[in-house]
Design a protein around this nucleic acid. Structure first.
Length: 423
RNA sequence: GGAGGCGUCGCCUAGUCCGGUCUAUGGCGCCCGCCUGCUAAGCGGGUUUGGGUCUUAAAGCCCAUCGCGAGUUCAAAUCUCGCCGCCUCCGCCA
């Protein structure tokens, strides 16, 4: 949720943000009107209620004719109070419904435009020249099958399209990646977490995934629970309705959980292999910090993502996404795109968002600061999305014979092995 | 899945049967002050949260808030119904 104070004092800023996102600007005027109505209704109710309370006390003390007269008057008043209360409730509901549609205020220097208008900030690593090495690179699925690491046929047999089994060395590779990611997180003061992957509507709603993103989310009708698309959801909701100790901030969590995505609307896209799947496991970083520290913390999260990708020796670029591609909660978002030799382009492997106080307001996560109690800022960042990372390792480190060299950093977690080899 | 118990302003707790003087009691903790070689003790005051209003600011004032929601009533912590959470027991189960 955006700051209602900003809406009232600086509606132009909200308009500018909506414009940048490519979202409705007219909504801002609707919101202002709804806010006006809400405040008016509350005032009316409070005045009537005060009068009713005063009369109530007189009734308690009075007796005889006086009491009868007072009761008649106060009975009328009760009707009015009831009406005013209903009116103020309705006005609040209207306002809430509108305000939830408004995305977070985008930072003014975020690039304009949509999906294709990102800005490449950095490029790292050496892309291999397979032609010079004298062989054509195999894609991740072919490699996965040679190594006995990935089984998509049986994934489809058992669960349908976009499901897979990691088998043998593939499963070992995921376990090693989890351990490498968690050891990096632990070294940097993160609290490791294994959160629930099913959450209530309030957690989903609070993190901003029930807006435009709702069609991509699995919902269990019988139980009214959602399967999370990222550990961001249960980690953000972890401190919901709490007042945190400001001195304890930043609170950094590293959550390992499955991620479930319906991938509605991506029919026919990335259908080969495990690039785009309905389920994958992920180690996600999540931070609660003071609002004024959020921008710096965002850079740190990006730094840890880069450190991880560097350790895996994957060539990559850092992108800043355009305002139209941010999602409801983010005020700024950086993606890391890894080099995919067989597609001759960079593809997304990690993503980090600064959600400022947007999610904290919705989830009621506050801290006691010097100036009083207020919402904290939240940030999230991928440390390791297993399937995408496995793809990058396989394709970038493959050898002519179909084996895959393991980056140094990963070897301690695979019993010192230097490569994955076909059996 | 079944049966029972519980949920009060940081923690503990009184109040709920029998609705109004509850503006929610007391203790602990915490904060401020006094006293005091220092510390402790003692004494006095303060201490739910959210919103609004006023103010340079503070204080003040108003409304809501006794797990959540609905209902009855002129009036609900208190009565009724629904829901949620926790605990105990039974059943089932990795």
């Amino acid at each position: 949720m955006i700051d209602v104070k900003v809406l009232r004092t600086d509606p132009d800023r909200v308009r500018a943000s909506q414009r940048a996102r490519g979202e409705s600007v007219a909504l801002v005027d609707e919101l202002l009107a709804a806010e006006e109505a809400r405040r008016g209704a509350i005032t009316r109710f409070e005045e009537l209620r005060a009068e009713q309370k005063g009369l109530g006390k007189q009734v308690a003390r009075a007796s005889g004719d006086e009491r009868t007269a007072l009761l008649a008057r106060t009975k009328e008043l009760a009707e009015e109070v009831k009406k005013a209360e209903a009116g103020s409730g309705a006005a609040a509901t209207t306002f809430d419904a509108l305000v939830k549609q408004v995305g977070n205020l985008v930072f003014p220097d975020v690039p304009e435009g949509g999906e294709d208008d990102y800005v490449v900030l950095e490029t790292h690593g050496e892309r291999r020249d397979f032609a010079a090495e004298g062989f054509a690179p195999r894609d991740h699925l072919e490699l996965g099958q040679l190594l006995g690491a990935i089984d998509v046929e049986r994934g489809a047999k058992v669960s349908g399209s976009r499901f897979y089994y990691l088998t043998g060395q593939g499963a070992e590779l995921e376990l090693a990646l989890i351990n490498l990611a968690m050891s990096l997180a632990l070294r940097n003061g993160f609290i490791p977490m294994i959160p629930p992957a099913l959450v209530k509507p309030s957690a989903m709603e609070g993190t901003g995934f029930l807006g435009q993103a709702a069609q991509d989310v699995y919902h269990l009708e019988e139980d009214d629970l959602y399967l999370v698309g990222t550990a961001e959801v249960p980690l953000a909701a972890y401190h919901s309705d709490e007042v945190l100790d400001a001195a304890a901030l930043p609170l950094r969590y590293a959550g390992y959980s499955p991620s479930y995505r319906r991938e509605a609307g991506s029919y026919g896209k990335d259908t080969r292999g495990i690039f785009r799947v309905h389920w994958f496991d992920k180690v996600e970083m999540f931070v609660f910090c003071a609002p004024e520290d959020a921008a710096e913390e965002h850079q740190r999260l990006l730094g840890w993502e880069k450190e991880f990708i560097d350790a895996l020796e994957i060539p990559y670029q850092v992108l800043e996404l355009a305002a139209g591609d941010l999602g409801l909660s983010a005020a700024r978002k950086y993606d890391c795109y890894g080099w995919l030799p067989t597609q001759d382009r960079y593809r997304e492997i990690t993503s980090t968002s600064n959600c400022t106080e947007f999610q904290a307001r919705r989830l009621n996560v506050r801290a006691r600061f010097d100036g009083g109690t207020g919402p904290v800022a939240t940030l999230n960042g991928t440390l390791c999305a297993m399937t995408r990372t496995i793809i990058m390792i396989l394709e970038n480190h493959q050898q002519a014979d179909g084996s895959v060299r393991l980056p140094e950093a990963l070897r301690p977690f695979l019993g010192g092995r230097e490569a994955l080899v076909a059996r």
